[in-house]
Design a protein around this nucleic acid. Structure first.
Lengths: 135, 135, 135, 135
DNA sequence: GTGGTCTAGACCACC
DNA sequence: GTGGTCTAGACCACG
């Protein structure tokens, strides 16, 4: 699987990594029991400090998404992929609430949001197709 | 107008303040020429350091939303409310992009988002009505 | 309050620190809202790396015992001291289970444990009195 | 005799093994002269690396609990079961001290501990009976 | 090889 | 001053 981080951004590197792992699990690219690259190996590949990757792994472990085994490696935990559809929907509720608040306070209507969402979804599908082609 | 900040949150206090001013202008609660409380006054009211409020005002002035007049006070600038509808929509594009990405990667469909948005909008309207009644 | 760590031990320094904070909260020496020393200050005092103290604080925050505020400091969180008596008892259940298993497998009886406990409690009370006198 | 380890736990596998041997000897399930399975055999059975079992055996031999006889196998040593009652009690002193400290610092009394111990002992006896029935 | 811990610096944003 | 992040090394225990 392909990993990448942008060190210059304002999002901390370790959070960028966490997000990629979360999304990989949510989307099924990483399944229960799959092994993640060792934090040193991934650090070398991404040209960041090992501790940085380690911190991302540590937080993911505390969140229950992955588990580590001394001397063996780091694996996607059983609990991780178990998120059911209602659960995944629930996780969107708060971000949606914030977005709706922002839009309505700006004097826009939900219809504007619906249009933006469909547009974003089209873009997203197109980008996916392209990045798949590159592989 | 009512101001409030949460010191314990992730978001810096000065950004919370900026956001409230921006939303107040976008929604019309603050109109061109309206006077903002002095940064000392507001700081006292919110129990935060004056420098913190000052920083929020400074950044808002740099963004052109407000203007300071020596010895008279701080006012909503003429340009501020001029944020056109296309502009306000543009500001939503990136947050929407992120939300859609999150949803699709989790295996959900845009329809799920549409439903969540309508639900959130209903909640938002109801809360507004209640908080208006309390005043 | 007095802090101390033993760098040569087999227990990681950051865990020794975590334990001290936990105990200080459990015993009421640290109450809700109390401020902890900054991680740099404490690191200097203990002659350890700031990151080491930081790691202890980070884990305690993730556990909900303390909260940090950008630029202000680190404080005992409201949830922390709220542990009710049943809760505190519950936390002893697993350690007790292990201890009992160890004793019974070794062919000892619960009476032996009861005696050991009373002896340890007497020692504990005496040590406390002495350390209080030293203060 | 039944052996089992949990690879995902905090405790190193070789220590889990050591502990099981120690407990088996202390409780009499393993007596002086009894033969332990070869480290390869046990490794295969537990699906762990042979080196891991070897390490556990090595440390147990260094502690004098077992002895290896070239080409014949590994046996519970004569000295092993000799742990006298005072000795076995002594080994509990430190764990008890920690437990008591934790309880008293949390504002609980020794009576609470006594109750918890009796409860845990009852559970332990019941579980033993059940697992014996299963065999 | 793996993960677990620690150091001694550094730069940044925030208050 | 505070906390937040990152680096480039190091040593140890585990498998």
């Amino acid at each position: 699987m392909l990993w990448q981080v942008q060190p210059s951004g304002e999002v901390p590197i370790y959070r960028q990594l966490m997000r990629q792992v979360e999304e990989a699990i949510a989307s099924g690219r990483l399944a229960t029991g799959d092994r993640l690259p060792s934090h040193r190996e991934l650090a070398e590949q991404l040209v960041v400090a090992p501790l940085t990757v380690k911190k991302a792994y540590d937080e993911l472990e505390r969140a229950g998404l992955i588990t580590t085994q001394q001397g063996r490696g780091t694996f996607v935990s059983a609990r991780a992929a178990a998120a059911s559809r209602p659960e995944r929907i629930e996780r969107l509720r708060e971000p949606v609430r914030r977005l709706v608040g922002q839009a309505l306070l700006a004097g826009l209507a939900t219809d504007d949001l619906h249009r933006l969402i469909d547009a974003a979804a089209r873009d997203w599908a197109r980008e996916r197709k392209q990045s798949a082609r590159r592989r």
